[in-house]
Amino acid sequence: MLTDQEREEIEAELPHYPRKQALCIEALKVVQRHRGWVDDEALRDVGGFLEMTEHEVDSVATFYNLIYRRKVGRNVIHLCDSVSCWVMGCDRICEHLKNSLGIEIGETSDDGRFTLLPIPCLGDCDKAPSMMIGRELFSDLTPEKVDEILRSRK
């Protein structure tokens, strides 16, 4: 079941749309914000509220890369791997992240602190290479800067 808090946050958006199914993506984002990721139960909870089957909700959830259908770490690192960042050396940053965390792209570190995922262009191309963790954007990355950022995250 959706928690009262989740329900309230989803309902706040209801008046903005003529059909409640339009809230599907928003509802998934709300649930993910509270639960960390979207498991099968979350699909049923959202579906129950929006009068959709869990499979309908899943077909939406699996389309969008920022809806996580697998458990993720406390910090999800989204490293930009688009063209401007590539020219400016994001491969090197990626190798550094993988070595420091002991994981490949798409994996979560054993201590559950970090998940490493690629992301299309973050619109920060004049300060490439860039990455995003949670709601925070980090620019002009160097391996040293990455170390510092990783250290500062619980």
Binding site: S82, C121, C125, D126
Partner: peptide, 11 residues
């Protein structure tokens, strides 16, 4: 939506 790689103007 500004997701065209290399584009950072609308932001």
């Amino acid at each position: 939506d500004e997701m065209e790689p290399g584009t950072f103007k609308d932001r």
